[in-house]
C-alpha cells in the first residue's frame, strides 16, 4: 500500500478518535464547570485548556467561561485540535484516500461533514450536549463501518494504529484533568467525580460489573490505566497498537526490538503493567506525561519508517544558450 494512503488512514483514525474523545471529555467537564463556584470557573477552564494542549493568550484566566472553552475546544475551526477541525481533517484525509477505504465509510465521513454546519449552529445555541451526542454517534458509525467493511490488511492496521495511539493520548488527558481537579493548590480541595469520569469514557458500567462497588481513586485509575479487557483503557489501546505494529512487520531479530515505535510502546506498556497501582497513583502526573510523550515518540518513529514519500518537487529548467 502507498505510504501516502497509509498516512491518510492513520490520521483518519486519529482525528475521529480525537473528535470523539474531546466531545466525551467536554461533555463531562462542562457539566462539572457549571456546578463549580463562580470564583473557580476561570481557573478550572484554564486547566482544562492546558490539559487539552491549547494555549490561550488573548484573555485572562478569570474571563474564561464554560461557554468560551466549549467554543475553543469544540467549535473553533481555527483551533487545529478542536472537534470541528478534527472532523474536517478526517474528511479531508478520507477524500484523498477514498479508494482505499470502503465507500460506506467514506459516505459516513462525508455525511458527517455535510451535517456539520447545522449541528454546529445548534451546539452554539446553548445546546452543546446535542452536538457532543452527534459527534459520538457519527464516530460510532465510522468505527462500526470500519469494523464490518474493511479487510484486516495493512490499511486496517494503520487505521487502528492511529485510533489506538490517539485513544491513549486522550485517556491520559482525561486522567490529568481529574488529577488537576483534585489538586488542593487550585483553590479548594475537589475530589474528582470518578463515576462521571468513567462514564465519559463509557467505562462506568463496565467498572461496576468488574469491581462491584463505587469507584475510588485507586480502583478508577487502575481500571482506566490497566484493565486488560476494557477497550478504553490505556493498557488495551497500547496493546492493540503494539499488535498492529507486530502484524505490519513480524520480523524479529535474535535480540532486542528493532522497530523503534514498537519498542517505545512496549516500554510504556510494561512500565504500567508491572508497577504497583499505588506507586502509579502516587506518581500519576509524571506517569501520564511520560505516556503522552511516549506516544508522540512512537508516532514520529512510525512516520519516519512507513510514511516516507516526498512532497511535490518543482523542477526548473536550466537556461541553455540555444533556447530563447
Amino acid at each position: 500500500m502507498l505510504s501516502r494512503i497509509a498516512e491518510g488512514l492513520f490520521w483518519i483514525g486519529r482525528y475521529m478518535e480525537r473528535a470523539e474523545d474531546t466531545a466525551r471529555i467536554l461533555d463531562v467537564h462542562i457539566h462539572h464547570l457549571l456546578e463549580a463556584p463562580v470564583t473557580s470557573e476561570g481557573q478550572l477552564c484554564q486547566s482544562l485548556l492546558a490539559i487539552m494542549g491549547v494555549e490561550i493568550r488573548d484573555s485572562a484566566p478569570k474571563e474564561l467561561t464554560a461557554r468560551r472553552v466549549t467554543e475553543i475546544l469544540a467549535f473553533d475551526a481555527d483551533n487545529p485540535s478542536s472537534i470541528v477541525s478534527s472532523l474536517l481533517a478526517a474528511r479531508a484525509n478520507a477524500r484523498g484516500v477514498s479508494e482505499a477505504i470502503s465507500s460506506e465509510m467514506w459516505e459516513a465521513l462525508n455525511a458527517t461533514y455535510n451535517a456539520l454546519p447545522a449541528h454546529l449552529e445548534l451546539g452554539r445555541r446553548n445546546v452543546p450536549y446535542a452536538f457532543f451526542r452527534f459527534v459520538r454517534d457519527r464516530a460510532a458509525m465510522v468505527a462500526g463501518l470500519s469494523e464490518s467493511s474493511m479487510s484486516r490488511d495493512d490499511a486496517w492496521r494503520f487505521f487502528v494504529l492511529g485510533r489506538s495511539l490517539e485513544r491513549v493520548d486522550m485517556l491520559t488527558r482525561l486522567l490529568s484533568s481529574a488529577v488537576v481537579g483534585s489538586d488542593p493548590e487550585h483553590g479548594r480541595d475537589r475530589q474528582p467525580d470518578w463515576a462521571m469520569l468513567l462514564r465519559s469514557f463509557s467505562a462506568h458500567e463496565a467498572f461496576l460489573r468488574s469491581y462491584r462497588r463505587e469507584p475510588e481513586p485507586v480502583t478508577a485509575v487502575e481500571f482506566l490505566l490497566l484493565d486488560r479487557l476494557f477497550p478504553r483503557s490505556v493498557f488495551w489501546a497500547l496493546s492493540t497498537a503494539e499488535d498492529c505494529l507486530a502484524e505490519l512487520d513480524p520480523r524479529l531479530g535474535r535480540a532486542g526490538m528493532p522497530d523503534e515505535s514498537r519498542r517505545t510502546l512496549g516500554h510504556l506498556r510494561t512500565n504500567l503493567e508491572f508497577r504497583r497501582v499505588d506507586d502509579l497513583l502516587e506518581d500519576l502526573p509524571s506517569v501520564l506525561v511520560a505516556v503522552q510523550k511516549g506516544c508522540a515518540a512512537a508516532s514520529a518513529a512510525l512516520a519516519a519508517r512507513y510514511f516516507r514519500y516526498t512532497n511535490p518537487i518543482e523542477w526548473s529548467s536550466e537556461v541553455v544558450g540555444v533556447e530563447s
Binding site: 502507498l2 505510504s3 477514498s98 479508494e99 465507500s103 512532497n311 511535490p312 518537487i313
Partner: peptide
Amino acid sequence: SFLARQMGVELVEGRD
C-alpha cells in the same frame, strides 16, 4: 478515485 476503487488498484499522485 471511483475508477481506482472499482478496479481495485492504487490511485497515485505524481509524488508517489
